[in-house]
Amino acid sequence: MELSGITRTYDTGAVHVKALRGIDLTVEAGEFLAIMGPSGSGKSTLMNVLGCLDRPTSGRYLLDGIDVASLARSKLARVRNRTLGFVFQAFHLLPRTTARENVELPLLYREEELSWKEIHRRAARALDQVGLADRMDHTPNELSGGQKQRVAIARALVTEPRILLADEPTGNLDSRTSLEILALLQDLNEEGITILMVTHEPDVAAFTSRTVRLRDGLLRSDRRHDALAARTAISNWVDEDEDDAPHTDPTGPGPAAEAAGVDA
C-alpha cells in the first residue's frame, strides 16, 4: 500500500473540513500497523480511504500497484470484497442473524459464485479460526462483546483477504477481552495478513510492530518497535486473577496498561 499526498476535505455546506491534508505512507505486506492520534485527528478518515470505502479528494493511493483512488464505485466494491477485510468498533453485525450467516455475508457478494456448501464450509472454518466454532448458530444478542468482535473478525477473514482494517476494534471492549482480540490479531498477522488498526490507546498500539501518529490530518511520527506478545499478557493476567480475589473488577486497569508503561 502506497499513499502519497492524500487529502480528504469534507464539504459540509459553508465549512470545509480538511480531515486529511497530505498523507504519505507506505505499508509493506505483513506489517501490523497502529494508527494513533487524538480524537478528530483524521484516523477514521484515513482508514476509510485505505479501506476503499472513501475516495481521497486528491493524492495517489496504490494498492498492489493499482491506483484505486480513481476506480469506479463498483470496482472499489470488488477490491473491498476480494482484498480487504473490515473490523469496526461497533461490530456492525446484522441483528437477529446467526453468527454463521453474518460471516457468510461477504461470500454472497463474490464475483465468482460459490456453492452454498462451499459458503457454509468457509464460514465454519473462519469461525473456527476465531475460536467460535461452537457459537455458529447464536445471534449477536446471545453473544458477549468479545464474541461479537470475533464474529466480525471471522466475517473479515472469510474472504481470505490480504489486508485487515480495524477501526478501534477494542474500543467497545473491556481490557481482558481487548487482549484476547489483540492476541487473535497478532496470530493472524503471523500467518501473513497485513493489519492496519486505528486506536487512541497507547497500550493497544503496543501490541503492533509499527505505530504512526496523526494530528490535524498530518502524519507526525512513524515508529517501528517490537510487538508485545498479547498471549503473554493474558497469561500474566490469569496468574494475577488467581492471586487476587477472582472477578472483582474485570474492567479495572489491566496488564495492558502496565505493558504500555514498560514500553514507554
Binding site: G51, L53, R73, S74, A77, R78, R80, N81, R82, F86, H92, L94, L105, P106, Y109, R110, R155, T159
Partner: peptide, 13 residues
Amino acid sequence: REVGLRLAVGARA
C-alpha cells in the same frame, strides 16, 4: 447500517 455493511463487504449498488 445494514446497507452500509453490505456495501463495505463488497455489495455493489
